[in-house]
Design a protein around this nucleic acid. Sequence first.
RNA 1: GCCGGAGUAGCUCAGCUGGUAGAGCACCUGAUUUGUAAUCAGGCGGCCGUCGGUUCGAGUCCGACCUCCGGCUCCA
Length: 628
Amino acid sequence: MKVVLPDNSELELPAGATGLDAARAIGPKLAEQAVLVRIDGRVQDVRLPLADGEKIQFLTTRDKLDPDALSVLRHSSAHLLAEAVTRLYPGVKLAIGPPIENGFYYDFDFPEPIREEDLEKIQAEIDRELAEGREWSRREISRDEAKELFAPDPYKLELIDTAEGDISLYTQGNFTDLCRGPHLQDSKPIKALKLTGLAGAYWRGDEHNKQLTRIYGTAFFDPKDLDAHLERLEQARERDHRRLGTQLDLFHLEDHSPGSPFWHPKGMVIWNELEDLRRSENLRRGYLEVKTPLLYDEQTYETSGHLQNYEENIFWVHSHGESDRRMALKPMNCPGHMLLFGSRLRSYKDLPIRFAESSTLHRDEKGGTLHGLLRVKHVTQDDAHIFVTPEQIEDEIFGCLDYASYLYDLFGMSARFELSTRPEKKLGTDEEWDFTEGALRAALERRGIDYDLNEGDGAFYGPKIDLHMTDVLGRSWQMGTIQLDSQMPQRFGLTYQGADNEEHHPYVVHRALLGSLERFMGILIEHYAGAFPFWLAPVQVRVLPVGESHFPAAQDLTQRLREAGYRAESAEPTETIGKRIRAAELEKIPVTIVYGDRESDESLAVRERGGEQSTLSLEDLLARLATL
RNA sequence: GCCGGAGUAGCUCAGCUGGUAGAGCACCUGAUUUGUAAUCAGGCGGCCGUCGGUUCGAGUCCGACCUCCGGCUCCA
């Protein structure tokens, strides 16, 4: 048989030849360094046979940053971890140990709980394995043989039962694991392996199952790459919104009200800019601002369905005795907007009606889930509910997508769009879902948006489109959401009078585009690493008088900048000018003006964030600021 | 909610095997009057998360709770 090499030359091989055989035929060095065979985009263990006519490419230890090559290295590293743990902790049961982005993990069921300090011991054992060296061999066996071999391992048995295709084993030293592969030939390419953490994780990701102990680690072909990886993590921490929030005096959190940020004056400037943006854009796009109550009685939530489906997140409020009527803080705006719509007769001529409200919501999130601004109990959504006829659905969804794209583009952010379709537990017929899912799909395609399909993840009342962003540590967060709902208007008995003189239930589009302002602020802070663009910067211009005698002139300039609409400030010189410039730079203020003997309206010393300096007249400065 | 880790000055952190709390920055005062990323000196500042226990003695050891951090689960 023949295989095709990357330079398009053909290599003649005996039938059944493996990747390793092919590598040997090309050269001993390649055979030694081969990590993986790439065949038409997919990758394969070097020990597996090739097929006639396949176009193959070898990944070697020199492809040290290739994600596939790293995955193999890390997968084998996970097996070294499992070997070490098996030796150190007799009676431990093994679950799974895959490579992941930036590393690997292995899940264990330990007879006794282990602690973080145990990792040192395990790390030492792995280092010993690496010093000794390990070679991997692969063997394929029948399911029955596999079950016999792994009889004492309940997790492996379950894997054998649910695995697709042939069962294969990989052995290194005295350790054999059930594994699909691929793996390294030997442990020599693993030049850096570091255990990074310990966590609980449920078997098969289901909280009803037993919780296992997960050990995380990472590995590289080159110790320098590990250093670079750790350096990147450190840099990521530098732009973490929780750190910047304190450093830049934007917000803080307190034990006195967990998950509820305190916004400081500087953070509030940015918050208000977002609100202004939302309001002016709502006006342009035909939304109507409304305001609905924070508290509703139990009956309201029963009607909306939140009592049945969301009670664990609801904050109840007890009034002072006079009544036994329970009230609760709203976790979302829908009920209020439904009641508002239902407060008078509506005609089909009124639709679509777009009620917008940026309101405070409270959600009593489970302990252990709060996370800076990205997961809070005090949620402020840039919310709106659009009441539509069926014919209007697609256009309104399109309008929401257009609006969302406009907003994210404004910040230079690119969100990932995800369409979630009918879940198993759903209300309504398949025909209805065909129609509503089709409308969402059509709107996405008309707007030219690439999206991922998340089948079965829609709400029980309708399909939805979600926008996702990634934080500085690589975690994905849902931002905006656009949900189509046929149920809530019915539950609230909402109708409009149609052209046919009949009453109809409207559909409603629930949509929040930034999502929660808290979460958006968190992502925004990280997106800009705290160096906000001029229009968002809490302080836009700081005027620094060189000496005390220059302070009045600096104040005068500051006032004129304020009157021109800028957030400008100056203060008496209590420190050296060098130190105050440094402070302005650390506060990431976009424009600093040094004002001393040489300055006048005709000639100002302007420093922009980052250090670029220019001399401008006041007139030119104002012209310059207008472009920022 | 679960697994692991942590909570010490406004911030970042040190404080070993129990013996009465420390640095840098910030802040205040004084000197310096400054020209594009840190002038010098002095000073203020702590219920060592909360409650309970062990001990002659607890920041340090033990327990409970609260909060935060890394994961898991959840996320209408």
